[in-house]
Design a protein around this nucleic acid. Structure first.
Lengths: 147, 147
DNA sequence: TAATGTAATTCGATAATGGGACTAATCGCA
DNA sequence: TGCGATTAGTCCCATTATCGAATTACATTA
């Protein structure tokens, strides 16, 4: 049949594969209470903390959803809410406690994935993949932070 | 900061962008009752129908979830369940009625996206992107149909 | 043909998501 | 400067999505 596989499906498959591997790695390390939706929010917290609204935008969920998930992450000891010195309305969500423990685990698994993908594609194609996706951000990500 | 953006996030952004555009196109054409979860299932129905279990695998949801979503799609007139001549236990989910109307809309929007992305990346990088993602399927997609 | 495996469904519980309204703080501009 | 418009976050609540476990019906195989 030689069916053309749609770009959307190709992206979905790769995205989910990476996501599942990382979540699985974290869970295998004993953090079994972390859910996928929580992890998606947590993964977008920057080193200096990130506002709730920004987390919601990046993870593409409504503010209430992000708030709900941050509540859980906070109760489970993965993150904390702190004040935002720049704006008294806002609060910064920060990685904390158990959250700090899973960051290196996630990073490590991410490196594993990159290594495997590179082995499969070759260094050159892997670089091209990252390059293409990075360039795409300027037209696909309305909230992209400037480089 | 020049923060390294993770591959997972890059894939997420691109995947969601494509997905949202297509769903939005379909909804704008008047099919406002279609949900994202339903669309993800519907998008994986092949030209000759697809089994529920396969839809579940491809969309990465449990069988019950796929069943639940197909119920809705059927009630809304987008798909139908037919018998599978090869196996009386199985049933083939087929595009039907209103479903047939949205296929060209989705395909058209998909072509738009490809055109825009190609304009942004250049023909060469776009080809490389598709090539890399396609190659990745062999290690990321346990249910990949052979080329 | 008995045992084992597979496709799909049902039931029930839980997780995730968003709409709408609300409070508090900030911003913008006349 | 002060007031209306905007923005960050929360609360309440209804709906949607998701899965575990058990069940039925058919297939496969020893």
């Amino acid at each position: 049949m030689s069916e053309e596989v749609s770009l959307g499906v190709l992206l979905f498959v790769a995205q989910r594969a990476a996501e599942n591997r990382i979540l699985e790695a974290v869970r295998s390390a004993g953090y079994t209470d972390l859910t996928l939706a929580q992890a998606r929010i947590a993964a977008r917290i920057g080193p200096d903390g990130t506002r709730l609204t920004e987390l919601a935008e990046q993870a593409q969920v409504a503010k209430q959803t992000a708030s709900f998930l941050v509540d859980q992450l906070e109760r489970s000891g993965y993150v904390e809410r702190t004040v935002d010195p720049a704006d008294a309305r806002a609060r910064l969500v920060r990685v904390a406690g158990r959250g700090a423990e899973i960051v290196p685990i996630a990073r490590h698994e991410e490196a594993n994935i990159e290594a495997e993908w590179t082995a499969h594609l070759g260094k050159r194609r892997m670089t091209q993949l990252r390059e293409a996706l990075t360039m795409l951000r300027t037209i696909t990500d309305p909230f992209a932070s400037p480089d």
